[in-house]
C-alpha cells in the first residue's frame, strides 16, 4: 500500500470553508424562503414547505459542518524533490502526481476571506493542467512557492 502524503493544510481552512458554506446557505435560504412564500400565497400543498425546510437544513448541515470537516481531513500534500503529490476529495478520494520537471509556474492566490485568516492558496501549473493546494499558512505558501519554482527550474527535460 502506498503511504499517504504527509502534510496537512492549515487548520484555519475550516472556518474559511464554513464561512463560504454559510454564504452559499444564504442563497439557499432565499430560495427556500421564496418557495415557502409562494406556497403560502398561492395555497399550494403544505408539504412543499416541509420539503423546503428539510432541504435547507440538510444543505446547511452539509455545507457548514460536514463537508468542510471531511474535506480538511482528506486534504494532504507533499512536495518532494522530484514531484508534488496531492490527495483530496470528499466522496471520491483523488491522488495526483505532478513531476517537478513538468511544472511551468507556481502562483499564490489570496481572496479577501483567505487574507483575513492570513492564508493563501498555491496553484501549480503544468503545460496542460492546473493543481491547487488551498488554504496554506501565508509564510508556508510563500516558502512552498519559492521551493517549487527553484526545483522546477533545475529540471531541463524537454516538454
Amino acid at each position: 500500500m502506498l503511504l499517504e502524503p504527509q502534510k496537512r493544510i492549515s487548520e484555519r481552512a475550516l472556518p474559511v470553508w464554513r464561512i463560504t458554506g454559510a454564504i452559499y446557505s444564504i442563497f439557499m435560504l432565499l430560495l427556500c424562503g421564496g418557495t415557502t412564500g409562494l406556497t403560502l400565497i398561492f395555497d399550494w400543498p403544505i408539504w412543499i414547505i416541509a420539503i423546503a425546510a428539510l432541504v435547507l437544513i440538510v444543505f446547511v448541515y452539509l455545507m457548514i459542518f460536514l463537508l468542510p470537516t471531511i474535506r480538511w481531513r482528506r486534504w494532504r500534500y507533499e512536495v518532494r524533490e522530484q514531484e508534488i503529490e496531492l490527495q483530496q476529495g470528499i466522496f471520491i478520494t483523488r491522488r495526483t502526481l505532478v513531476p517537478m520537471i513538468r511544472v511551468q509556474h507556481v502562483d499564490t492566490v489570496q481572496g479577501p476571506l483567505l487574507r483575513k485568516y492570513k492564508l493563501a492558496t498555491v496553484t501549480v501549473s503544468t503545460a496542460a493542467t492546473v493543481h491547487e493546494i488551498p488554504a496554506l499558512e501565508l509564510d508556508e505558501a510563500e516558502e512552498l512557492r519559492v521551493f517549487i519554482s527553484k526545483l522546477a527550474r533545475v529540471a531541463d527535460e524537454d516538454v
Binding site: 476529495g89 471520491i92 483523488r94 495526483t96 502526481l97 513538468r102 493542467t129 493543481h131
Partner: peptide
C-alpha cells in the same frame, strides 16, 4: 512517461 503532465488515481467509497 516523460510526456505525461500529471497522473491521478481516484477511489470512491464504493470502489474502495
Amino acid at each position: 512517461k516523460n510526456k505525461i503532465q500529471s497522473l491521478s488515481m481516484k477511489e470512491s467509497h464504493f470502489q474502495r
